[in-house]
Computed example of a mutant assay.
Amino acid sequence: DRAGIGPAGRQPVTPNRLIGAVLTVLAVLLAVGDRLGDPQALALALLPLAAGVGIAWQQAVNGRVRAAAGSAMTATLVNFTVGTAALLVTFAVDLAVRGRPAGAFPDEPWLYLGGPLGIVFIALAAALVRFTGVLLLGLATIAGQIVGAVLLDLVLPTAASHPGLDTLLGAALTMVAVLVAAFGPSRRP
């Protein structure tokens, strides 16, 4: 946002936006703090961190494409066309190196909802980023993922999903962080 890469243009680093970002990082640390002593878990945490940087860039660029084309669906089409091409190249390399997959496609129809949900997410993000900026959209996305994950753990529990007090407090703090960042002084210079 500060560099002006997103479609909302340059946005100043306000105290509320900074506090919101710091509170979000603290919320994540609170929710997973008990696992930070494990070197493997810490190393695996770098992957979502790298993905988050990529998603922020993606949201900014999709917002720019949306602004240039005048349509969130155009940004979504460009995103999925490039993504599909990259996946096809990766699949071709994987086929050449490892051969055909041995397993069959999953039978459960709900497992195929990821693609349509991704299309809706990209279209909404491309449309909203010009109003919210990349930071607030990112914070709200993180909050939504955490709340969604906690709800899934509570509604459809598995042997590994038992959110503890730290996780619930982290989810609540994430929501507070989004509110702090959203309701601060104007984000436009």
Rank of each mutant, 00 (worst) to 15 (best):
T76M: 15
L23C: 02
L49Y: 11
A27P: 00
V97E: 05
V13Y: 04
R98A: 15
P101T: 12
A177T: 09
T84G: 09
A140Y: 00
A21G: 04
T132S: 14
P189Y: 06
S71N: 13
R100H: 15
V22A: 13
A85W: 03
F91T: 15
A125M: 05
G164Q: 06
A126C: 06
M175N: 05
L23H: 04
L137I: 02
V25R: 01
N79G: 12
A104Y: 01
A140N: 03
S71V: 14
S71G: 13
P163H: 04
A31N: 04
L18I: 03
R98P: 02
L47H: 13
W110Q: 11
M73D: 12
T84V: 10
I142R: 00
T84W: 11
R35P: 03
S161L: 10
A45C: 10
T132R: 05
A69E: 13
I55G: 10
A92P: 01
H162Y: 07
N16Q: 13
G138P: 07
P48S: 13
A43V: 11
R188K: 10
I55W: 11
L173P: 00
G52I: 04
G118H: 10
T24I: 01
T14D: 03
D38G: 08
A172I: 03
H162T: 11
L44N: 07
N79Q: 08
P185G: 15
L168C: 06
V93S: 09
G37D: 04
G184T: 08
L117H: 10
A85M: 07
G4S: 05
I19E: 01
T90N: 11
A104N: 12
V82W: 09
V22Y: 01
P39C: 11
V120F: 12
Q145M: 09
A92H: 07
R17S: 10
A60M: 01
P101G: 14
G4C: 04
T174W: 00
L154Y: 08
R64N: 08
A31T: 02
T90Q: 11
G184V: 11
A102E: 15
